[in-house]
Design a protein around this nucleic acid. Structure first.
Lengths: 356, 356
DNA sequence: TTGTAAGCGTTATCAA
DNA sequence: TTGATAACGCTTACAA
């Protein structure tokens, strides 16, 4: 493979001149410039990015650390990150499936020298300490962090308000006995959504009942289990709030398998607004989380720190999570409203094209 | 930030010794080893990966180039790649949304020095030439390539056979007038699926009719359009094969919006087996594509070339795409069929050796 | 305008 | 077993 030296000798100039030409420096004669370009083309010279970043101390790359979860939420976040990154001509180094907190540290370490900054999504409280160590090394941006970390900006979803609003919606439809299927213990998103639920009930003067607060794990199966548990209750509630859509899906199949109808026998609402939510019948009322936007903003917020590490002020953005009323909650909505909250709009907006 | 030099002076040894300790060389005294580790810990030393790869000529990273498409298909491929990569302690550099072929070249160029090999997914014939240039630089593995490239291994989905089989299934159910909604022109997957459709008809002694071959673009909206077009035909077919599930979804809503029922009035089948396919009502009969597996195998096939570029033989794997019979085609099947649709019957062809 | 040479942070090759 | 020192491929003072 041709190096800068090969180009230099082919163009009969020094490597310094080649470097200047390649980086568009104005202090080069027209003659030299032409010879260098010709030589570079002829040798099909590709600069070594790693070597360059060694001297410049800039990699023009950012790292992304994702937790041990997958599904469309994360892939959408990645898409947002990727899009924003390429707009800034940044490369993206991904490392996912970090189950335990020690792995996060290791992954970050192995990126040393390869990235200018790091986006971390680690929903567990235990990852805070490793993150603090990482943040001493490069600029870190947190997505939906369990708590704020000194020196790190963050962007998060308004889980609390979204949950509160969707439960309030159920209350407004006359429901008084509202159950909740909770997310995994220790997960911030799960906790915040639970707090929102509690808050809405309290505001309506309804006392929380622990028998209506069913454990779940953000999986479809755990939603199914929760559904069965729900059906075994003596005084069955009239509505359920599942902490995410996957569980809502499992929940609905459990109800259906026992001959119940949604929303007639039981109103169901979820959280996340995953793609299938709008395709289900009845279409799932849920809370919309714009994962793509989350990724986009993560990059934008990280950007200033990439340019001048340490000097930029930290900020915390919170993304609104609006309620999307569909059919599963039993409240009737005008058809205009319905199509607005559905898939069609979003898809054409972004010109969605799925592959292959 | 501490460098190897800082560690060396803190441990009162030379940088060579530090390097030896860090890389687990046995030719170091126990005493020195301890002092170095102590110093490294105390200084919280993180080696610079870029500097290391400059001398070793190995980056332990691989690049991934994706086309200008998104959706769960690609995110699943990425998940497969990521999982296989982390099993080999490889990092993953992603760059997506490559609309035109020149961008593929640029993206690959900008990865020079940062990766040991590259996985490219570029479904258009036009990208073959840039890929050939890239393949002279590092080991390249092609996913679903439009045609084979000299020196590159590949892994692809058996689009032709999947399409043929699903159309055959329609034929077996008594359909004789079967339409197809095609994918974007120039896209290999689209072309192969179309060939499979034609082949199945021919085998049944049915002549292809161009009026039944409707244009599409792999998008839900284009499926909707195609549905309307279909309805305007004088002699309406009894079944439709959409070249992917997204279009099938759009198609079904178009039919429904005009009061038709699937499969009673028209049988519909798709391709890809995206998540929502099984959640729709009627659940969509389709052809299963294991995108995760595709990513996994891509890494595995690339692996030997990463270890010894040039020397490894090239091979071409083809992933089976089994038909998944659900409800939208009108034929009743036992639910067992779906679980069967996994990973049987994979053909592996071994090609010639390219290296010494 | 150009070239020489000193880094950047490692690993690898020598002697010692 | 160790330590100088020369790479690796590039950028960037500093001189010329």
């Amino acid at each position: 493979m041709a190096t800068i030296r090969d180009v230099a000798s082919a163009a009969s100039v020094s490597i310094a001149t080649v470097s200047r030409v390649l980086n568009g420096s104005p202090r080069v004669s027209e003659d030299a410039r032409e010879r260098v370009w010709a030589a570079a083309d002829q040798l099909d010279y590709w600069p070594n990015t790693a070597a360059r970043s060694l001297t410049t101390q800039r990699t023009h790359a950012l790292g992304v650390l994702l937790p041990d979860l997958f599904g469309e939420f994360f892939s959408e976040v990645i898409r947002g990150i990727d899009e924003a990154a390429r707009a800034q001509k940044l490369q993206v180094l991904i490392s996912s499936s970090h189950a335990d907190t020690q792995e996060v540290l290791l992954a970050a370490r192995s990126m040393r020298g390869r990235i200018d900054g790091l986006i971390i999504m680690a929903p567990d409280e235990g990852s805070i300490e490793p993150i603090q160590r990482i943040a001493r090394r490069f600029p870190v941006l947190l997505v939906n962090p369990p708590s704020s970390v000194d020196g790190c900006s963050s962007v998060s979803v308004d889980n609390f308000e979204g949950a509160r609003a969707v439960v309030e919606h159920l209350l407004q439809n006359g429901h008084r006995e509202i159950a909740m299927v909770r997310g995994p213990a220790g997960n911030v998103d799960a906790e915040d959504r639970f707090r929102g639920y509690r808050d809405a009930l309290a505001a309506a003067g309804i006392e929380a009942e622990s028998r209506l607060e069913i454990a779940g794990a953000f999986t479809e199966t755990s939603g199914f289990q929760a559904g069965l548990e729900l059906l075994s209750l003596k005084n069955r509630p009239t509505a359920v709030f599942a902490a995410n859509d996957s569980m809502a899906v499992g929940l609905v199949s459990a109800l259906r398998s026992r001959g119940l109808q949604v929303p007639r026998d039981l109103a169901v609402v979820g959280f996340d607004d995953i793609v299938i939510a709008s395709y289900l019948s009845p279409a799932l009322t849920t809370v919309h989380v714009d994962a793509y936007e989350l990724g986009l903003r993560a990059v934008r917020l990280l950007l200033p720190s990439l340019e001048s590490p340490g000097s930029s002020e930290q900020c915390h953005e919170v993304l609104a999570a609006p309620v999307v009323v569909r059919e599963s909650c039993g409240s009737s909505q005008s058809p205009a409203m319905k199509s607005e909250s559905g898939r069609d709009n979003k898809i054409t907006q972004r010109g969605r094209k799925t592959g292959p």
